[in-house]
Amino acid sequence: MKNTSHINPLENEAIYIFREVAAQFEKPVLLFSGGKDSITLVRLAQKAFWPAKIPFPLMHIDTGHNFPETIAFRDKLVKELGVELIVRNVQDAIDQGKVKEESGKYSSRNSLQTTTLLDAIEEFKFDACIGGARRDEEKARAKERIFSVRDDFGQWDEKNQRPELFDMLNGQIELGQNVRVFPISNWTELDVWSYIEKEEIEIPSIYFAHKRKIFLRDGLIWSHSDYVYQEDNEEVLERMVRFRTVGDMSCTAAVFSDAADIASVVQEIRDSSISERGARIDDKRSEAAMEKRKQQGYF
């Protein structure tokens, strides 16, 4: 067989996008949540610039309610890459009275991240924020461009997006605007998992089946934790579970699973009949939940 550079259209497209970001912007940043999508982004960025280091920092908007496994994983990865990690805390915005912590049964810090993110963009004058959102996640996301322009207030003007033709990415912006960049826009959840398997990418242990204290509410599996509000009559159980997506503990539901390694996880995703966002408590709020959050500058 001829020795040709291998051809995975999605991977080649993502690498192309990363290189456009590095060339077209002065201060890009990769938004790193510690989840599988952002870990995949990091691998793609490595591929785009090898043998040079990734030419921009990583930034984590920390809700303070993370799974401890994700934080440990994050710190290890950054050390290996030799890139700068910026952490900005939602707690600071709460302490400064800029945002108000939600209370009650469905309280979560997820939507509070927006303020901290916008503040950090302003603080560092970032002109491009690279994220791991995918169009298959949710139907408002399906409308998103690869280079998505946000105004001074971080807002998404969904009815007036720039046409994006062919491979050409227009990154021209005015001072104060910034662009959200989504290199894995065209990947599905299964594409990401298959890629992690093929590339043997290390991911946090909570993605694999483990024993965890949980409770059930509204047909979803919630983590029993100090960060998650729980009613007295919601009984704590111990079960084998894993996570399909990893955000803030208060907005990420688990699934029952015995998939303890990547091959069984890929198989499970193939067979599964519920979408990944189905396990996002924040999307259950209303049909337009995502679109509303995005208009306000959410990732």
Partner: peptide, 19 residues
């Protein structure tokens, strides 16, 4: 040389992102 990430190849395929 033609690189795709850290591996060398003889040929760069159509639509591949190489160095």
């Amino acid at each position: 040389e033609i690189y795709f990430y850290d591996k060398k190849y003889q040929t760069a395929s159509r639509r591949s992102s190489v160095t």
